[in-house]
Design a protein around this nucleic acid. Structure first.
Length: 418
RNA sequence: GUGGCUAUAGCUCAGUAGGCAGAGCACCAGAUUGUGGAUCUGGGUGUCGCGGGUUCAAGUCCCGCUAGCCACCCCA
């Protein structure tokens, strides 16, 4: 027992152990396959970005205000670990000149994001996202396309029982008038709202609608719905998105309380939840249109729409329903030197590797123990090497399933193992 | 930021009215004159998370701290 506590992983992060890797590969591969099938190209952006980029994009969100991992300043740049991907992808779109190619750019990204919030099930400080972004396209067809893509991904990886919630939150033309209506509605009720909600009333009234606090619930149903107050353009967009989803056979629920708290979000917003769940911490993927984002970053005004899918959460569901992935042995062949034959065993392994994955058991334990261990690993063949064998460059090959053994020269191993 | 539960061997955990610290698994060795799977036998020195308190006596009761998990808020 060590005198001090051993060093553990940082709070809120976790390891993906070998046994879980196939599941992650499947989720990521499924994402990449579906994205490519829809004509999207992969992009990778840095996990560090300038704090300013991140802040411009989400000043009011917890993710930026309280949960940002800011790096110690080195030189003049103020950097942080990205809490989400869209800001960086939009930045890269302009910086990399993608805005000068054919429009729109269809992009996807898979990678880690970082938020310093309190860890719990399905929520980690480092988590992995599948992001899909259409930048430079304003048509409702793109909104429906990314929704369909998200749904296809979940379907592809076997997460079938999902619920899609959809809403439109208008744009700079119609939202201000709606927000005034909303404030007019809530002001007389202010004293009966939760303290946090009272603050939101003037600062970010849209957020009152997605409040999960019990005492706020009774007032929602009578609140004005933004979809009843869209301008003509937004209403047409909203109608076409729904028609496209209907035509695609995609089921959704109109949730008038589904919102985004940031100004640059416009029109379409959507979220995918697992069948039974209702809490927001269960969202598998969420996205929407962000026609104001490029401008917020200081680039030319450019429309965009996309979503972020949570790999960690999707994998959790895959693991529950998916049949256990057969643990493949790390190696097909194990070389068991019987005695002090490390050099010779390594050479034999090198020979075997030309045809099969091969490892060596260098431990100074009994041959029985080495056999036991080879058996547990599930190797198909064992190459036994005694000092006498080694001197003549011969070995004994044992087939672990049949128990058959043959003595042979090292040079014969590749043909016998192939 | 708030609350609940938990913390004992490498792992999973038991520990009964406070009275010498336990099991299973894993691992090693042997039975098998150096060849796996089954069986049997042997192999444990653990600051009982940390710090205080009560007591003749604390893994056990009380307080504080830390960590983990879960939930709230919020996010994927």
């Amino acid at each position: 027992m060590p005198r001090t506590q051993p060093i553990k992983a940082a709070r809120g992060v976790r390891d993906i152990l070998p046994a879980a890797i196939p599941l992650w590969r499947e989720a990521e591969q499924g994402a990449a396959d579906v994205a490519r099938r829809f004509g999207y190209q992969e992009i990778a952006t840095p996990v560090i970005e300038q704090v300013e980029l991140i802040q411009r994009v989400g000043e009011d969100t917890d993710a930026v205000a309280k949960e940002l991992y800011r790096l110690e300043k080195r030189g003049s740049q103020d950097l942080a670990l990205r809490p989400e991907a869209t800001a960086g992808v939009v930045r890269a779109y302009f910086e990399g000149g993608l805005n000068q190619g054919p429009q729109p750019s269809r992009l996807y990204l898979i990678g880690p994001m970082f938020r310093h919030d309190k860890p719990q099930k399905g929520r980690y400080r480092q988590f992995s996202q599948f992001n899909v972004e259409v930048i430079g396209g304003a048509s409702p067809g793109f909104d429906a396309e990314v929704i369909e893509l998200a749904g296809s991904w979940l379907d592809e990886v076997g997460v079938r029982d999902v619920r899609l919630e959809l809403n439109s939150i208008g744009d700079a033309k119609c939202r201000p008038a709606y927000l005034d209506r909303l404030k007019d509605y809530y002001r007389p009720l202010k004293s009966r709202l939760h303290a946090d909600s009272q603050l939101r009333l003037e600062r970010n009234p849209l957020r009152l609608l997605d409040s999960k606090v019990g005492q706020d619930q009774p007032f929602k149903s009578a609140a004005p719905k933004i979809t009843d107050h869209l301008c003509a353009d937004c209403a047409a967009h909203w109608a076409l998105v729904r028609r496209l989803l209907d035509a695609a056979g995609i089921e959704y629920e109109h949730n008038p309380y589904l919102v985004r708290g940031l100004d640059y979000y416009t029109r379409t917003v959507f979220e995918f939840y697992p069948g039974g769940a209702r809490g927001q911490q269960d969202a598998l993927a969420s996205g929407g249109r962000y026609d104001g984002l490029a401008e917020a970053e200081g680039w030319p005004s450019t429309p965009g729409v996309g979503f972020a899918g949570g790999l960690d959460r999707v994998i959790e569901l895959m693991a529950v329903k998916g049949e256990p992935v057969g643990t493949r042995p790390a190696a097909d062949v194990m070389v068991l030197p019987d005695g002090d034959l490390a050099v010779e065993a390594a050479e034999v392994a090198r020979i075997c590797r030309s045809v099969r994955s091969t490892a060596v058991d260098y431990e100074p334990k009994s041959l029985a123990a080495k056999m036991r261990s080879a058996n547990k690993l599930g190797v198909k063949f064992v190459v036994l090497l005694s000092p006498a064998d080694a001197a003549q460059r011969t070995a004994r090959l044992r087939d672990m399933s049949s128990g058959e053994q043959t003595d042979l020269a090292w040079v014969e191993l590749p043909t016998r193992l192939a």
